[in-house]
Design a protein around this nucleic acid. Structure first.
Lengths: 332, 332
DNA sequence: TTGTAAGCGTTATCAC
DNA sequence: GTGATAACGCTTACAA
């Protein structure tokens, strides 16, 4: 790799002149600038990022710690993060905690040595369930800006980007009750132990309560054969006329199982789940989805963090990104 | 952040002694080592990664350039990459090309300035289709190790990790013909213009040819309403008794559409697609899948690249990762 | 066993 | 308008 020193030697001028010329300093003559730039182009000179980082004490890099990336929600968030980071001229280093507290902790420690300017984190399932989040607080206290999204820890004082979990499920349930006239609405879940899962269930329960209906929750996070379980549950509760899934898997399975026991969808049963573009593509009849704006969540997370990085006196914020209820098209 | 200099001052010894002590050098007395380590622990000293990188001219970072991460194949590959990178003490910087040549080019250039020790790349659709890959060659020529996986460019001289696209589809088709006695096998595709798509189609065609059957290919990469298209095609070709999908979407849609026109699966029609864990979960009756070992592909990519990074005289390799035909369980 | 000093590639301050 | 020099934080000959 070409360095300033090499350019300087070849041009018989000093390193500092070369540096200034490349940075278009007013101190340098146009002629010198031209000579320097020509040679730099010719030798494909690129300033060494590492040296710049050491000098400026800024890495222009964000550490992103995700529980997983095979879950399409996090994949899409990552897409948003990458897009907005690129716009802001930031690189992203990514670590996957695999839902493990230990790995999350390690990644955080490893990157807290000047490798990144700030962090974007969605807490691992284990950390959240066992309520061990001291390692995150440690980073916050060391003055490295942190932004948490989706799975957040209320006690930690940092920027947050969250989804309106309670409200979106409340409204979806309310829609089923009021518009579709459903009365026996089952909630199925495989994430009931996460903060977001709890909020979503509460939204459902409140909506049912407000309508004087009896809530019915099927918790499957620890179940192996989810399919069989939903199948038998539906078979034994033939009066169920609507299903709310609070994740992106069990809704589609519920549709398949409902069809299997002879239910006609959407006539005899409505199904709403959480999901993304693909989700609707893969179900037939199409499922209605609560569409979390995952891409936007990623984008806003980066923007808020970058603002924090720039501003001297940054006020911590919590942004709520509204979800959107996308009804299944009746074309099916 | 605590630095060596600060530790040295507090202990009234020199910076180099501190450095050596922390690196457990035999030159340093046990007593000094103890004192240094105690203070370092107390002040939570962590060596500045950037400074180390500048000094050693190694970043211990891999640049990963993916077309997308919302496609579950690439998401799972990324999972494998992250896992193996962590084991080898490498960080990963990720860039998403969004299938765009321009973005891929830019990312590559941006990171070719000492930010990473090597690259792992799956070529963007646009780069592959338009056969513009000079930007990748440029990196290879600049002596930065590059590894390409899945979507590779034959002309570029670097390590490669690929899937046995031709063979896996050939064998799946052969299985349908010989074991399941199918005769009218339709191939559906939404990736026919990619190198992997072409190979997969060839595998299918060869198997059909070898069995004296007429190939029938439905190309959908430019079609908007894939669902309607498959539906009408199946309706107008009632003799189709098996479907091979060469991507992870159209197979499931085909199952749904086949059911819709009254086909009994798997009795009257077999469906094989490409897929992952989720794929089978989301289809009912379950689809048979050609399971690409995406996680392993990610792992092997990192390992091969890291080997290249370590070894003085590295021999370029192409590793073929075999896929596995996972038949739908008959429990459904 | 410990310390001095040079150097990685930049940028920035200050002299000339 | 140009150049010498120091500094970022670390590692590593080499000297003491």
């Amino acid at each position: 790799m070409t360095t300033l020193k090499e350019l300087a030697k070849l041009l018989n001028i000093s390193v500092s002149t070369v540096s200034k010329a490349l940075n278009d300093s007013h101190e340098i003559s146009e002629n010198t600038k031209r000579r320097v730039n020509e040679l730099a182009d010719k030798l494909n000179y690129k300033p060494n990022r590492i040296a710049q980082q050491l000098k400026t004490n800024k890495t222009k890099t964000i550490g992103v710690i995700l529980p997983t990336v095979t879950n399409p929600f996090f994949a899409e968030v990552l897409h948003g993060i990458e897009t907005r980071a690129t716009i802001n001229n930031y690189d992203i280093i990514i670590c996957l905690s695999d839902e493990s507290l230990e790995k999350e902790k390690r990644s955080l420690e490893l990157l807290s040595n000047g490798s990144v300017d700030g962090f974007i984190i969605a807490v691992a399932r284990e950390s959240q369930v066992t309520e061990q989040t001291e390692h995150i607080n440690k980073v916050v206290n060391s003055k490295i800006p942190v932004l948490m999204f989706d799975r957040v820890v209320n006690e930690i004082n940092c920027d947050k980007v969250v989804v309106d979990d309670f409200k979106s499920v409340y409204e979806a349930t309310e829609y089923l009750i009021k518009t579709e006239q459903r009365k026996h609405i089952l909630l199925v879940s495989n994430i009931e132990e996460l903060s977001v899962g709890k909020l979503r269930i509460k939204g459902y329960e409140k909506a049912m309560e407000d309508a004087n209906l009896k809530p019915d929750v099927l918790k499957l996070s620890k179940v192996k054969d989810v399919e069989a379980r939903i199948h038998s549950y539906l078979k034994n509760h033939q009066n169920i006329d609507a299903i709310v899934s609070i994740d992106h898997i069990t809704g589609i399975i519920a549709i398949n199982m409902a069809k299997k026991i002879g239910k006609v969808i959407p006539k005899e049963m409505s199904v709403v789940g959480f999901g993304y573009e693909h989700t609707q593509l893969l179900s037939s009849p199409k499922i209605s989805i609560i569409h979390q704006k995952a891409f936007e969540i990623g984008e806003m997370s980066v923007q808020l963090l970058v603002d924090n990085l720039k501003e001297e006196d940054h006020n911590l914020q919590t942004i709520i990104v509204p979800s959107e209820l996308k009804l299944a098209e009746s074309t099916n």
